[in-house]
């Protein structure tokens, strides 16, 4: 079993093992873009490992050198010389060939809000804005209930009755509707941010990072200011998330 002590073989085994774990051990499957990134890091780490001392590096290089120079490995050499370019060519083909689906897109995590918006003809300053309905704790349950009713009437069809972005229409959209249960969505944002997104919808998204492909309507024409704040309160109450608070400024 001395061949198992070969650094080259160890590196190959770890590389293949890492690929198997990343490709098949993560559910749902990780996107190829992420797997490629991870495998590049694994390859880098393996190269560092095998070359971090002289003996290890010699052990790693030995079989490669032998394959390239020694007559007894002529057949292996021929297979490598032919097979490697073919594999690379196949990879290039898979990357370049046209497919019957839209190519992957870079998407921004959160669109940046403007400092202020016009809401039904009046200026609304988003930076630093608080939800005015939270000033009266006694009315909290009433506002949440009203927000729930508004959500069911208007939002549930896309964002789902579990607020997880799995509504009836969700499968027709790319990108899918926001999943409010995800701690990376509304929990990261101030309520004023949600107010802007709901009021202005897809048409109000910033010009950068386009195309957003958002089908979110601009609700300012259908909901009042109070109703928007109510539905925001419902989103946080129903998911158990806390809105992000404004940091103290100096």
């Amino acid at each position: 079993m001395s061949f198992l002590r070969s650094r080259f073989l160890q590196a190959v085994v770890v590389f293949v093992g890492a690929f198997v774990v990343l490709r098949f051990g993560i559910r749902p499957p990780a996107p190829w873009s992420v797997i490629t990134l991870y495998m590049a890091i694994v390859a880098m780490a393996l190269l560092i490992f095998v070359s971090s001392d002289r003996d290890s590096w010699a052990s790693f290089v030995r079989p490669i050198w032998a394959t390239l120079t020694e007559p007894r490995y002529r057949i292996v050499r021929a297979v490598v010389v032919v097979g490697l370019p073919l594999l690379l060519g196949y990879y290039a083909y898979t990357q370049a060939a046209a497919r019957p689906q839209a190519p992957p897109e870079l998407r921004a995590v959160h669109p940046a809000p403007p400092d202020s918006i016009q809401f039904r003809g009046k200026d609304f300053n988003i930076s630093g804005a608080e939800n005015p309905l939270r000033k009266d704790p006694d009315a909290f349950a009433r506002h949440v209930a009203a927000g729930g009713a508004i959500y069911v009437r208007n939002c549930m069809f896309c964002h789902g009755d579990n607020l997880d972005g799995q509504g009836h229409f969700a499968h027709g959209f790319n990108p899918p509707p926001a999943n409010f249960q995800d701690p990376g969505t509304i929990a990261m944002l101030q309520e004023a941010y949600l107010f802007w997104r709901i009021a202005k919808g897809g048409p109000g998204l910033p010009k950068e990072s386009t195309p957003w492909n958002s089908v979110m309507p601009a609700w300012e024409d259908r909901l009042t200011e109070e109703q928007i704040w109510q539905v925001i309160m419902y989103l946080y109450a129903a998911t158990g998330q806390q809105p992000r608070r404004w940091e103290a400024t100096h």
């Binding site: 993560i26 559910r27 749902p28 499957p29 990780a30 996107p31 190829w32 873009s33 992420v34 689906q101 839209a102 190519p103 992957p104 897109e105 870079l106 998407r107 921004a108 995590v109 997880d164 972005g165 799995q166 499968h171 790319n174 990108p175 899918p176 926001a178 999943n179 995800d182 990376g184 969505t185």
Partner: peptide, 22 residues
């Protein structure tokens, strides 16, 4: 946080945020 995904991958993940890697 927001991954480069194809439509099939996004559907399998339930969005552009992976439920685990996210």
């Amino acid at each position: 946080r927001s991954m480069v995904v194809t439509l099939d991958e996004a559907r399998a993940m339930g969005g552009t945020h992976h439920p685990l890697l996210g």
